[in-house]
Every structure is written in C-alpha cells, then in structure tokens.
Computed example of a mutant assay.
Amino acid sequence: MPHINLLPWRELQREESKKKFVTILVGIVLACFLSMYLLSMFYSALKDGQNLKNNYLSSEISMLDRKISDIRELDKRKENLQQRMRLIEELQSSRNLGTQIMDEVTKIVPQGIYLTKLERRGNQIYVLGRSESNNRLSTMIRQVQSSYLLERLTMQDIVAGDQSSRLLSDFSMEFYVKPFDEIGEVRNEP
C-alpha cells in the first residue's frame, strides 16, 4: 500500500465538494431570490388591495360630501321658508294691530281721563291728555302695565291745569306695543 497515490482521489473529492458547495450556494441564492420575489408579490398584492380600498373610500367620501352640501343647501332653503312663514304670520297677525291698539287703549283709559292726542310711531305710542285727578291717572298706568298688548310705560310729565281750568291736569306719556312673539304667547294662554 505504500505505492497507492491518493492525491488524484483527493483532488476529485475536492472538486466534487466544490461543485456541491457551489450547487448548494446557487440553490440557496435562488431560494432567497424566489422567497424575496414571492414576498414582494405578496406585499405588492396587499398594497394594490389597499389602494383599491382607498380609492373606493375616496369615491364614497366625495359622494357623501356632495350629499352633505345638498343637505346644507336644503337646510338653507328650509330656514328661508321658515323665515318667510314667520314673516307672513307676523304680517297676518299685525294686520289688525291698529284696531287692537285702539281697542286696548279704550280699555285702559278710565273715566275722568280725556285723550287729546294719540300718535303711533312704529311700536311706540305717544299720548297727550287731561286728567281730573292723579288717582285716575295712576289707574290708567296700572292698566297699561297689566295689558297684554302694551309695555314699557314712561310718564313724561304731569302739569297742573292753568287758571281757567284748575280741575284738569295735562299729562304726556309713551308706551310701546309688545313684540309679536310675546303677544302670541300671551293670547294663546288659557
């Protein structure tokens, strides 16, 4: 056995080991590339799916935004219509306001008070008159304060009568007609 040369066999063994190593290395590299490719395809599919969902949500959001703007527009129209209806109701109820004011003034003026001037400026009513006594004038003031239609009485002045008619005192006052909302609430109460 001393004459057996093992060098070529070892060389062949090394060559085969190198080939196996290169084959295994190439296999591992291919497996890594394949797994990376598959992972990339998987995440690309997930990304595409998410993009589809995002696009769908964006289209739905834009459709809902249009509906919201339509609803806001309808709310504006509704508010305008309600405002018009309130104005029409106010005009309808204030149509007879002059008559109601005159009727209420006749109710609040007691005997012994004579009105010489009654003037209306918007919601303000200015009254000039003569009174037989201050008690009758205070009765009138109380009746104005308890009126459903009149409010905010301001007594301007009371002047004792001059020499020729000492019995009558001149007075001036002003009061206001209550706003429509307050009149309607008071009238609707039982």
Rank of each mutant, 00 (worst) to 15 (best):
I71T: 10
L39E: 12
E119A: 14
L128F: 12
Y126N: 10
S94P: 05
E132W: 04
V29T: 07
E89W: 10
S146T: 02
I101Y: 04
L46V: 07
E90M: 00
V109F: 14
K20F: 03
R95L: 06
F21I: 04
Y148F: 12
Q124S: 07
Y148E: 14
Q111A: 13
V22F: 07
V105G: 11
N96Q: 06
S62R: 13
Q124Y: 01
L38T: 06
K20S: 12
K78C: 07
D103M: 05
E119K: 13
L153F: 01
K117H: 06
N134T: 11
L150F: 13
M41L: 14
N80K: 02
L153Y: 04
E73N: 04
A31V: 02
N51R: 01
C32G: 10
K53T: 06
K19L: 15
A45H: 00
Q100A: 14
Q82Y: 01
Q82H: 01
R84C: 04
T154P: 03
D103L: 03
S35P: 09
N123H: 05
I61N: 11
E79P: 01
L91P: 00
L128S: 06
N135E: 15
R121H: 13
I71M: 03
K76D: 07
S94D: 12
V109L: 15
A45E: 02
E73Y: 00
T154Q: 12
G27C: 11
L81G: 00
V22M: 08
V29P: 04
I88M: 09
V109K: 07
I108M: 02
K18Y: 05
T99P: 12
L25E: 10
S62D: 15
L137W: 00
N134D: 12
L128Q: 10
K107Q: 12
L87I: 04
L91F: 05
S35A: 14
S69W: 01
I61M: 15
V29A: 09
Q50T: 03
V29W: 07
D103Y: 01
S44A: 07
L64V: 11
K47A: 02
N135S: 14
L97Q: 09
V105I: 13
T154G: 03
A31L: 15
Y126R: 06
L118Q: 06
K20D: 12
M63D: 11
L64E: 11
M36C: 15
S69L: 15
I108L: 01
T99H: 07
N135W: 03
T139A: 09
R136W: 13
L38F: 13
C32W: 06
D75S: 10
L115I: 15
I101E: 05
K107N: 11
L25C: 14
I71Y: 03
S93L: 11
R142T: 10
L38A: 09
T23D: 14
I71G: 08
Q143H: 01
E119S: 15
S147E: 09
